[in-house]
């Protein structure tokens, strides 16, 4: 058994796949560099993330299957599910062994896992495109927080960049502690510091003077387009699960 250590990034994992072939490693197990529960009885192989190696693995997958299949692998990786890197390795090994594309070979267990996980991640991406709510700060920054189930910020970045090309915005992932920031030219990844003790008045002042008004108008709009005679809570919850409510102004009690 060989323990393959990589930095947890997708590029790092692609490099690891390359090196598993390069060094003919068999019976591998993945671990991320910071993990501390490494067994002492295994031999180790530490991967240095290498863009060139990663690109070769990626392009080989695109050529043998399709760009959609390669994207499905990327999406599946972003699900961050326990042991998903090992499942994806089996997928890659299957893909590299077969002569024809494997993306529709649903009888292979890793293929099924990939299409199912890909579907979940894409749904979460779509939900974030729908449920992100910006608040305008006093200095003209549109600011949003979210806690997506999967690591989808890299996937939604293009959508928001194209759509909000003329406003500065930041979307912060409160669970993974990083954000994406658009400065009217490009999107970059940012870390943010929050101070523990912030006074309510300071926060109040940090926002644009009309921010509260528009949140309330939106709340009012949301409640007045509802048709009470058609109430259907089950359907409502199916489309807007409760875990997303905490960042949606329309699901907060109206301000007055």
């Amino acid at each position: 058994m060989v323990m393959v250590l990589y930095d947890g990034s997708f590029e790092g994992w692609l490099t690891a796949v390359f090196e598993i072939y390069e060094y003919k490693l068999a019976d591998v197990q993945f671990a991320q560099e910071h993990a501390c529960n490494l067994s002492m009885f295994h031999s180790r192989h530490t991967v240095q993330t290498n863009a060139a190696k990663a690109r070769r693995v990626w392009q080989s997958l695109v050529q043998r299957n399709s760009i959609d299949a390669a994207n499905a692998v990327y999406h599946t990786f972003l699900s961050e599910q326990q042991g998903i890197d090992a499942v994806l390795l089996r997928y890659m090994q299957h893909a590299f062994k077969q002569q024809k594309p494997v993306e529709t070979d649903y009888s292979h267990p890793s293929v099924i896992t990939v299409i199912q996980t890909d579907r979940k991640v894409r749904r979460e991406k779509h939900r974030m495109e729908a449920f992100i709510r910006f608040q305008l700060t006093g200095d003209g920054l549109y600011y949003a927080i979210a806690e997506p189930d999967y690591n989808v910020l890299p996937l939604i970045s293009r959508h928001f960049e194209q759509r909000y090309a003329d406003q500065r915005w930041v979307i912060y992932d409160g669970r993974r502690k990083y954000g994406i920031y658009y400065d009217l030219k490009q999107v970059s990844t940012v870390q943010m510091q929050f101070s523990q003790q912030v006074q309510a008045s300071a926060i109040q002042q940090a926002y644009d003077e009309n921010e509260q008004l528009y949140q309330q108008l939106w709340q009012r709009y949301f409640s007045s387009v509802n048709i009470k005679a058609r109430k259907n809570t089950r359907l409502h919850l199916q489309h807007m699960p409760r875990r997303y409510w905490r960042y949606l102004p329309e699901k907060m009690p109206e301000g007055r």
């Binding site: 949301f222 509802n226 048709i227 489309h239």
Partner: peptide, 13 residues
């Protein structure tokens, strides 16, 4: 199309 919210009667907003 994106549905940004759903009313309590389950319709897309």
């Amino acid at each position: 199309g994106i549905c940004h919210a759903y009313t309590e009667d389950g319709r897309c907003v």
